[in-house]
């Protein structure tokens, strides 16, 4: 089948684009610019995945700091330092959540060059901008995730003598992570799509390629069709993979009884045959022995 497509493409080369039908143009674009589209899609996916991962780490860090409990029992220095960082991080979250990523890209990319003489590569700039943007959103998600874990979990951990850090690491964060997985997936999909704004600083991602191709041959509709299909494929595959990963995190719905020892079901069940206790079905027996009636 691919051979016939290739044959069709070879036939099309040399023909003028203006005289082609819609499907012929699509084939032509794929034949001529296929590798460019793939490169763009690859970069889009790379930026989205890595920046989402870094963003999650930033968000986790910020969320953890935002939920450090400060009590009046703590000394003044600790209280000041924690409060200071909490306010600082609050500002970071509000600024990056409250402005468009497109303008952030321009601001940081050109600002760094003009103010600090830092000329970062466009790909580096892309990772940087999408990461801190995702981090701002994830910070709130993580904070919400931490707060959504039943306070009883914290009390259970405290009651066996765990410190705040131990409680967070062993009990709260694993549950938080599971709870915010759908939101992480959401962010990944948003990032796959929203990296297109990075074309404003000439990052070679999928939208940038589309703009180039469409502008060169005036094939806006055809190129947009191809680009749409590629974006949709990427987001659907990612969504599916994340669902699968979530299921894996949940573990099996069934469990094995550890019954290597045939006595395991009864060992130490605290039964007093012939004596009974006031709380089980033998209570009558127990009452008779006591010679008293139940309260």
């Amino acid at each position: 089948m691919w051979a016939s497509v290739q044959a069709a493409i070879t036939q099309l080369v040399g023909t003028s684009v203006g005289s082609m039908s819609f499907w012929e143009r699509i084939l032509y674009l794929i034949g001529k610019y296929g590798p460019s589209y793939l490169e763009g899609a690859g970069n889009t996916l790379l930026i989205a995945i890595i920046a989402t991962a870094i963003g999650c780490i930033i968000g986790l860090g910020v969320g953890i700091v935002q939920t450090i409990p400060v009590s009046k029992k703590d000394n003044a220095v600790k209280r000041f330092v924690v409060r200071f960082f909490q306010v600082l991080l609050r500002i970071y979250v509000e600024v990056f959540r409250g402005t468009p990523m497109m303008i952030q890209a321009v601001f940081i990319y050109y600002g760094a060059a003009q103010m600090f003489n830092i000329y970062m590569g466009t790909m580096f700039a892309a990772f940087f901008i999408v990461s801190i943007n995702t981090g701002a959103y994830m910070a709130e998600t993580v904070r919400g995730g931490i707060l959504s874990v039943d306070p009883g979990q914290t009390e259970g951990a405290k009651a066996i003598g765990m410190t705040h850090v131990q409680t967070m690491m062993s009990v709260i964060l694993p549950q938080t992570l599971r709870n915010i997985m759908p939101q992480i997936g959401n962010n990944l999909i948003i990032n796959i799509k929203d990296t297109c704004v990075l074309s404003v600083i000439s990052v070679v991602e999928l939208f940038f390629v589309h703009k180039g191709v469409a502008g060169a041959l005036y094939t806006y509709f055809e190129s947009a069709t191809i680009t749409m299909v590629i974006y949709l494929t990427m987001t659907l595959v990612c969504a599916k993979l994340l669902r699968w990963w979530e299921k894996k995190m949940d573990g099996s719905d069934s469990y094995d009884l550890a019954t290597t020892d045939t006595l395991a079901h009864t060992t130490g069940m605290y039964n007093y045959p012939g004596q009974g206790s006031p709380y089980d079905e033998k209570s009558k027996e127990y009452d008779q022995k006591r010679g008293a009636k139940h309260v």
């Binding site: 029992k73 039943d150 009883g152 259970g156 951990a157 405290k158 066996i160 765990m162 549950q175």
Partner: peptide
Amino acid sequence: GPKVNAAAYRSHVGMVFQSFNLFNNMT
């Protein structure tokens, strides 16, 4: 008192809750 290590004290005093409070992420 303010200087007491609450976590260390709690490790000597066990507690069983009405709502169990078992860690959901563990077996």
